[in-house]
């Protein structure tokens, strides 16, 4: 807390030193944003608006969409599977994101320096993220959490009988959360890159002042890392809400057993492509945008009190 305050004061002081003229750079900004604007216009906006339109239609892909007003949205209220999907997805987001981020930060700090063979360790810890979305993962996960998987072999060694974890409705989601946490490589790499950016002078200065390692971590590293922690929190939440591939592959596209791994986007995808109901799928997509948008807005609002920017 106090460290954050100190840093804030420091940067405010430095800002006062330099002449900081407030002027708009509209022209330059639009030039820098030109590719992005073009992408927004040609690649993003049109399909987004199209999907918004589809959400008010009955559209089975094989025939042109037919306008049906708000029917797709009112249908959501009686859709029990949608509630199942929301329950699964919220559980996943609330459990896997914190676990994944804490693990990623911890390992990033450990792997940041001072260990021989760093490159190897980092790559090994990143490896799961490489196969996390591959078609082979369904089989691999059964090798671990299946009835005769690794986990049960270990349990059997201690005399504990185990059932299949992947195929039991009460544990299937936990195995997918484990899979999500297991692929923590992406946020770890981002943390590693961010740790690299912390000016050595800050740490040296603190060390001269006699700050121990733990104190240096909490009062220098963490505050300077907050923009990236914030980034990871925002995007891991967005990503977790959209989590699809792993549930799709592990459950064979069903979200089973008994809808216990029916992730929101999996349900949306099934509605759109398997059930050929792209209208309803689009409505579901926009509901998801509202939900994720709300989470992100709260994140940005809360960020004002804990994220430290040096600018």
């Amino acid at each position: 807390m106090s460290a954050l305050g100190e840093l804030r004061a420091l940067s405010r002081r430095s800002r006062r030193d330099g002449p900081r003229v407030r002027h708009r750079d509209n022209r330059a900004a639009y030039l820098f944003l030109l590719p992005w604007f073009a992408g927004l216009l040609f690649v993003t906006a049109v399909p987004m608006l199209a999907s918004l339109y589809f959400s008010f239609t009955k559209f089975n892909l094989l025939q042109p969409p037919r306008f049906i007003g708000l029917d797709n949205f009112t249908r959501m209220f009686h859709d029990e599977r949608l509630w199942a999907a929301l329950r699964v997805t919220f559980t996943y987001v609330l459990v896997s994101v914190p676990l994944q981020l804490v693990l990623a930060l911890l390992l990033a700090v450990v792997l940041d320096r001072g260990v021989r063979g760093l490159a190897i360790y980092r790559s090994v810890f990143y490896l799961p993220s490489l196969i996390g979305g591959s078609a082979a993962i369904a089989v691999l996960w059964k090798q671990i959490f299946g009835a005769e998987g690794l986990v049960n072999h270990v349990l059997a060694f201690f005399g504990v009988p185990g059932e299949s974890w992947v195929a039991n409705p009460s544990t299937a989601l936990s195995t997918l959360i484990t899979l999500g946490v297991w692929t923590f490589g992406a946020p770890m790499v981002i943390f590693l890159a961010a740790l690299r950016q912390i000016p050595v002078e800050y740490l040296e200065a603190a060390e001269m002042d006699g700050a121990g390692r733990v104190r240096r971590f909490w009062s220098i590293v963490v505050p300077l890392l907050t923009p990236i922690i914030f980034f990871n929190v925002v995007l891991q939440i967005i990503g977790a809400f959209q989590s699809f591939t792993q549930a799709y592959i592990v459950s064979g596209g069903t979200g089973g057993p008994a809808d216990s791994t029916l992730f929101y986007t999996l349900y949306l995808y099934t509605s759109g492509f398997a059930n050929l109901d792209m209208g309803y799928a689009s409505a579901l997509a926009w509901l998801l945008v509202v939900i994720i948008g709300a989470f992100t807005a709260v994140n940005f609002w809360a960020a004002k009190s804990w994220v430290f920017y040096d600018d």
Partner: peptide, 8 residues
């Protein structure tokens, strides 16, 4: 980035 790819 919030809109799932499947509908766009």
């Amino acid at each position: 980035i919030m809109l799932p790819v499947h509908v766009v």
